[in-house]
Write a protein that binds this DNA or RNA. Structure first.
Length: 204
DNA sequence: GGTAGGATAAGCT
DNA sequence: GCTTATCCTACCA
């Protein structure tokens, strides 16, 4: 089945709105010649230079954050904790640094590939419910690394395509793992989704 | 069921 | 030097 990619205009809106409307949409990765795909079940908004948890807080513009200033629909992939990659979709107008962090997916396609990637370098096996339940986990499962930083999400090896968004029960909570602006309700998660990250399955 | 601590490196002060 | 938009293992209940 062929699904249409989300257009640039989808991302050129208030970041909170994009974060909410990304729930239910589908990420498709063809990295390494393998097709993997998953449905977005958890997101967080990082709303710009006035957001103390945003990497572009205070207008920081460095080689690391450069992709955040790109056009809407750009992939912002950053490295953290010395070993993890995380994927964001850049939002709002070009030049305005804001993005939505993709925090969890429901695996749809290429589950065997996901299992292999997630188990690599780790003798044990990974429960299917943990394949994409976390921002770094889903990047590992989909083969996403810094090589994809700055690419457009409308075409190419990594893209976001339209999913079924009818009747989605959404919970709104503070963001996870940050120490700044802890009261801002900028995390969106499908209510009771078994695919959400830890700290994420909760109701509110 | 839960949580504490370690891994590991870029970017900042 | 210190912090970090994390994950995993070990350990305790």
């Amino acid at each position: 089945m062929r699904r249409s990619p989300l257009a640039l205009s989808f991302y050129a809106r208030p970041t909170v709105e994009v974060a909410r409307r990304l729930l239910g949409q589908i990420i498709v990765s063809d990295v390494g010649g393998r097709r993997t795909a998953g449905r977005i079940v958890e997101t967080e908004a990082y709303v710009g230079p006035h957001d103390p948890a945003c990497h572009a807080w205070g207008g920081r513009r460095t080689p690391r954050t450069e992709a955040l200033y790109g056009p809407p629909g750009t992939a912002y992939v950053y490295f953290t904790y010395g070993m993890h990659w995380c994927l964001n979709a850049v939002t709002e107008a070009a030049g305005y640094p804001a993005a939505v962090l993709i925090r969890a997916l429901e695996p749809l396609d290429g589950v065997d590939t996901m299992r292999r990637r997630r188990a690599r370098g780790r003798g044990g096996k990974v429960a299917d419910s943990d394949l994409c339940a976390g921002p770094a986990r889903l990047c590992e499962a989909l083969g996403i690394t810094g090589r994809l930083n700055g690419i457009p999400l409308q075409r190419g090896a990594l893209r976001v395509v339209r999913g079924d968004r009818r009747r989605l029960p959404v919970a709104v909570t503070p963001r996870i793992g940050i120490t700044a602006a802890v009261d801002w309700p900028l995390r969106f998660v499908l209510l009771d989704s078994p695919w959400a990250s830890r700290g994420g399955r909760g109701r509110r």
